[in-house]
Design a protein around this nucleic acid. Structure first.
Lengths: 106, 106
DNA sequence: ATTATACGCAACCAAATGGTTGCGTATTTT
DNA sequence: AAAATACGCAACCATTTGGTTGCGTATAAT
């Protein structure tokens, strides 16, 4: 169950903000991504690494700067998983409803 | 940005497993939920509280046991948020594609 | 009435997390 | 050539996290 790592990655305000900015298409070198986070570049870099390890972003070095890009495939995976949870829950409710109706039909 | 708390709640193997079991409609008292997790009831209880604080599950006391139920609304909220991230990312890609096509059209 | 079950509260612990500072190096800019 | 920028590595620190054990209490089963 590697799954949890994805949510863990999103489960921090700083990292979630990073992902949101990347999704909005904001500038995306490490230094730029650090701006407005209220922490140092090194601090931000450590959080970024968590996103990298969870395969939510990819880094590519270009000259002296490092480009940060969202890995949409991982986001989609998280999306599908949650959708599946909802689906099963709905099924359960439907089963319960059907049971009740069967028991109490006159 | 309370958002992050939701993902944080899912971002632990034990808690994610709990949510999965609840979504599957498994028995759902605290003790039953603890089974097969490989940790003590108290340990599980602490994890469960994280889910409660994130409003992902609701507890209701019935006699000597406590019923655990998934809060589907919160799951749906998480679902919608991720979907929105994807949507923005797609828009960005579309904009980039359009830009490239405009620049290089002959 | 006794025993067993389901639970809560609190103290405690090791490990992980979130962040910092200091320093070194490669690449650009001037 | 000198200065500035963008970055990495590592040590360090306080707080949070994930889990335990011990103990007390209310409800249910025998």
């Amino acid at each position: 169950m590697i799954e949890a790592e994805i949510y863990k990655a999103l489960g921090d305000p700083v990292r979630l903000q990073m992902v949101m900015r990347l999704a909005n298409g904001s500038p995306c070198t490490i230094s730029q991504l650090t701006q407005d986070l209220g922490i140092t570049r090194q601090g931000a870099r450590k959080q970024l690494q968590v996103l990298v390890d969870a395969k939510m972003v990819q880094l590519s070095s270009q000259g002296r700067e490092t480009r940060v890009d969202l890995d949409i495939a991982t986001l989609q995976q998280a999306h599908r998983f949650i959708a599946e949870l909802e689906r099963r829950w709905d099924q359960r409710l439907a089963a319960l409803k059907s049971f009740v109706e069967t028991e109490f039909e006159h």
